[in-house]
Structures are given as structure tokens and as C-alpha cells.
Amino acid sequence: MPRRPSPLPDILGDVFTVGEAIAAGATLARLRSPDLLVPFPGVRVRSSAAQTPDDPDDDRSPLAREAHTRRFDLLLRARAYAKVMPGPAVFSNVTAAAIWGLPLPISALRGRWNPDQRVHEPRPVELIVPPPHRAPRTAGVAARQRREDVAPRRERDGFVVSSPASTWAQLGGILTMDDLIAAGDALVHVPRTSDGRRGDPASSLASLDDLRAAVRAPRISGLDPLITALPLVRVGCASSAETRLRLAVARAGLPDPTLDFEVRAPTRELVGVTELAFEQWRLLVEYEGGHHRIDRAQWHRDIEKHRTYAELGWTVLRLAARDLYPDAGTAVGLIRDGLRRTGWRG
């Protein structure tokens, strides 16, 4: 029976360099133990840290669950490479988008296809290095040399990363049109406060003006998709599902809904906030992700909220992932029927 590896020094976290481990008292033999992963030379990761956490939206498609796993893996490898990354470099492209928390499809998170093993390899960690510094050549890293104004430096959760707007511009040649719009929506989204009030616009990751400026900056590829997507980015969508829904509604020729709509009682008290509202027809559309199902407190809040909506004369249409994926036709049909029942004659 293999002997259990000795404990690592408590001072070491889940990700550390060989130098940090040696300084803390670990031996080279211990650092070769199979319970440690070696994503890059000179870096170690505890294998326990590589276990993907549960996805709260686990009722989605297998591809969405794979995207959740690959995003976690990419961020873990970025954490590891950050330990040895050259000082002038910044994380960029899909890696930067993952760090900023932007919605990303599985197609963007997969690496190249390996025909021998018939699997997609992990997507490399991506960097931009300003001249005159040279881009590193390391397995598992894709680095390019670009001027610093193409990727202004920011900090996010301990990472040095390209700015949110410049990251969006880097995705122009990578994402499909709808995914590019969803990423833009996520950047300009203004989070609400814990009590449901509208947040400060400055709390968004980027403004529409920031995105316009990023599109005007020098770049190599992806300009045409960015120019097409930019006018379609909207403030008010809190998730890629909401973006998908509003785009499908528009393409179906349905009335233009109000996004992030506040429902108020006659006393002006805030009752709730809904994703899409067709005010003229008193129809509210709510997309409910997995947390609505597994969070008991959220479940009871939803029941009380929807009861109050009905008392105020609103009709509520609740949608789930299966109504939107893999095709939004079901959701559009339900909204069309709901509008007709509430008086729409389109």
C-alpha cells in the first residue's frame, strides 16, 4: 500500500511555487508526490483544489455543465501561472473574460481538438505582453506582444488583467454575435443593492462609452463583429439567459420589453424586480435559474412576490432553462401566447 504523503506546511495555500514550498520547509521529494499537480514549471497545485464545485444551474444542458467545469479549470491554471507570470504581462482574451466573470460558451472555453485522444484539450492561459518585453514560450500559455493601450492593466481578485472593455474587444474574433452581445450586457450591467434598489452606474464593470472607446482602439481582428454587436448591447440584463431571451423576443417581432423592471405597490414600495416587463399588457417575464429551486428562502420569497404581483393586476410568466436551451423558440411562443391573452393584437 503506497505511503501517505507527509503534510505540507500550513503556510502554503492551494497554489504555490516550488521556491515558496522549499522556504516553508517542504522537501523536493515531497513536491514530487502525486497529490500535487504541476500545471507549469516551478508551480504546484494541491489536487484537492482542482475539484470543480457544484453548478447551481445543474439543470442545464451537458454542454453548459462542461463549460462550468472548464471555466473553473481555466481560472485555476491562471491562478497557478500568476505565480510565475512576467511582471509586464496581463491576462487577456478568454482568460481575462473568465476572470471578469463574463458569460462564455463552451466553444470559447475548449482548446484545440486532439484527434488521437478524441477530446478537446484545455484552452491555454492567454497573455498580452507590451513591447519591448518578449512573450514567454511556455506549454499551456498563449502569449502575444501588443501595445499597452490595447490592454490597459487592471487588478481583479489578485490577477493582473486587461481592462473589462479591452477584454470585450479582444473577444470580437472569438465569440458568436449573441455571445458577444451577452458579454457586453454583462459588462454594462448595474448590480442592484442587497435591498433591491438600483445601484450606482459606476458599479458596472464598464460603460457603453468604455466599449465604444475599446472598439476604436487599434486591434488585429474581430472589428466587424464588434461594430455590429455594440449597438445591440443593453443595460439591464443580469445574465446571458436574459440576453438570449431579449434577443429572441426582438427577432420574433414581439413588442419591445422594459428590462430590469421595478414592480411597485400603490404606496411606491418596491415589491420586486423582474427581468422583462411588457408594461402596456401588464405581463411580467421572469427567468428562474437553479438558485431559485435550491434556495429555500428564495423559493418562499418568490411565492410571496408572485402573489403580490397578481394582486396588483400583473400576469407573471415564469421561464426555466429548458424553455431557452438549446433553442429559445419555446420561450418566445410562451411570451407570444401570454401577450395575446393579456390583450396584444400583434
Rank of each mutant, 00 (worst) to 15 (best):
S6Q: 15
V15G: 03
V18E: 09
V18N: 01
A23C: 00
V38A: 15
V43N: 02
V45P: 00
P53W: 04
D59K: 01
S61H: 03
L74P: 08
A82D: 13
A89S: 14
N93T: 14
A97D: 04
G101K: 02
G101P: 01
P124E: 07
P132M: 06
T138F: 00
A142R: 13
A142P: 00
D149K: 08
P152K: 08
D157R: 10
S162D: 05
W168N: 05
A169H: 03
Q170E: 13
L171N: 00
T176Y: 06
D179S: 09
A182H: 03
G184P: 05
D185N: 04
V190A: 06
S194L: 11
S194N: 05
R197Q: 07
A206Q: 07
L208N: 03
R216I: 01
T228I: 14
P231G: 07
C237T: 15
R251L: 12
R251W: 08
A265V: 02
E269S: 11
Q280W: 00
L284V: 12
L284I: 13
V285S: 09
H292I: 00
D295R: 13
R307S: 09
Y309D: 07
E311F: 01
E311A: 13
L312N: 03
L312H: 04
L319A: 04
A320K: 10
A321D: 14
A321K: 00
A321T: 03
R322C: 00
D327S: 15
